[in-house]
Amino acid sequence: MAEKKEELAYDTKIEGDIVVTKADAAINWIRSHSMWPMPMGLACCAIELMATASSRFDIARFGAEVMRFSPRQADVMIVAGTVTYKMAPAVRRIYDQMAAPKWVIAMGACASTGGMYRSYAVLQGVDRIVPVDVYVSGCPPRPEALLDGLLKLQKKVGRERSLSRLGSVESPRLSPTHA
């Protein structure tokens, strides 16, 4: 017993197996390689999102295969599709229910700018209601484009001060129930 306790203390025998790094680098590495998406599939872009997740393109290669339909378990909201004004509050509420740190990818022309829907019914870009980290162009973007967007987001996360993301919610919190 006594011998075992000694192993927990400094031990020259395991010295070579220890990696020294910065907390930011380690935390960001973990974060960026297991980003669980919240698939906000609202229109045709969602089909490409599904293609991105399935075998041919396989988003699992980048650690983002765990699509979570519970916002509590999601890290990145992928807004894939046309956000109507009627849907916009729901998108915002789901975003609010995601735990920090959280990110948003606007996938496709509609989510980014309203796209071809210059009309009375469509929100002209999801960045009017949630902060967007990466915009992916295309109508719809090919799965490669979405993967590229995800890689861009991973790079962006890698540059962040990891702890700065925890508390900050950009706007007042909303009550959990619908008004």
Binding site: A88, P89, R128, I129, A179
Partner: peptide, 13 residues
């Protein structure tokens, strides 16, 4: 106005 007053107030949209 947006359909949801709370979201409208929080986002200014």
């Amino acid at each position: 106005d947006l359909p949801d007053r709370e979201v409208a107030a929080a986002t200014g949209a």
